[in-house]
């Protein structure tokens, strides 16, 4: 069907032809057009068996075209209309991915991270045995890791501002709430740093011991051991971004 972008003519066509046009668009990777073609299938032939399949394919195409909001709306409708359909697990999974890929950097609002967490948890609870649950579990860990990253970002801000109490509590929350994330070694090290700055020597020693026990090979432990013994961090701290304001990426 016409690929120019003026609104597609409302042309009645047999359902198989429309469906194949849409699949061709998917093949070519022209996802936005594909989504529109699948919508046409469902609009012109809502009661055909193709319509259900087209609904899901249109959502998939919106997802590939990074139009996450449209994908989520289409998926919600599919789940509501066909709760019993065999493809429903995939619909929940695709919805979770649509939130997951909008997660923004730790410095910004983490609403999408929370929505992704809930949606991924949904997939795992509803369809524990489906093949999507395994990947959802993996992505769930990364989402939780991201939440821990947010705590660390705020903790480091307070540490640099010499607000050591605020920093300690933020790093402690990572160690207590997010034990399985990749940020725990750094959180433990930051605790050692803060305790040393506060003069809480016993806490610094205990935390360095825990870090050594759980992450013996890490650079964080090397620094922690040195600091707990009264010295300075040993690994290269020259990664300092220098005094130039970090010029943002131009393009």
């Amino acid at each position: 069907c016409s690929s120019d972008n003026e609104p597609d003519a409302y042309v009645e066509r047999p359902v198989e032809e429309l469906y194949n046009i849409a699949m061709a668009d998917v093949g070519e990777g022209n996802y936005e057009q594909a989504a529109k073609s699948f919508d046409e299938v469902e609009r012109q032939h809502p009661y055909s068996s193709w319509a259900t399949r087209a609904q899901l394919m249109s959502a998939y195409s919106y997802y590939e075209a990074e139009k996450y909001d449209d994908a989520i709306i289409a998926l919600d409708r599919f789940i509501q209309l066909h709760p019993g359909n065999p493809d429903v697990p995939y619909a929940y999974y695709l919805k979770a991915l649509s939130y997951y890929e909008q997660i923004s950097s730790v410095g910004r609002d983490q609403k999408m991270t929370r929505l992704a967490y809930d949606a991924l948890q949904d997939v795992i609870n509803r369809f524990p045995t489906s093949e999507y649950a395994r990947d959802a579990k993996l992505k769930l860990d990364l989402t939780v890791d991201h939440m821990a990253g947010k705590e660390m970002d705020v903790g480091r801000y307070y540490l640099k501002q010499k607000q050591y109490l605020a920093a300690v509590n933020r790093f402690k929350s990572v160690v207590e709430v997010y034990q399985t994330t990749s940020h725990v070694p750094e959180a433990l090290y930051r605790l050692v740093e803060a305790y040393a700055l506060l003069g809480m020597q016993t806490e610094a020693m205990k935390t360095a011991a825990v870090l050594g026990h759980n992450y013996p090979g890490s650079e964080w432990y090397e620094d922690a051991y040195a600091v707990a013994q009264g010295g300075q961090p040993v690994t290269d701290t020259a990664q300092d971004s220098g005094w130039l304001p970090s010029l943002p990426a131009l393009w």
Binding site: Q102, I103, S104, S105, V106, R108, L142, D145, H146, G149, M152, D153, R156, L159, K160, S182, H183, P185, E186, Y189, E193, A196, L197, L198, G199, E219, D223, V227, G230, Q232, P233, T235, D236, T237, Q239, D240, S241
Partner: peptide, 16 residues
């Protein structure tokens, strides 16, 4: 308290 130099290395986090 002791003056400890704060390490700049951070654990990477993805995000757009």
């Amino acid at each position: 308290g002791r003056d400890v130099e704060i390490v700049d290395r951070t654990t990477p986090t993805p995000g757009r």
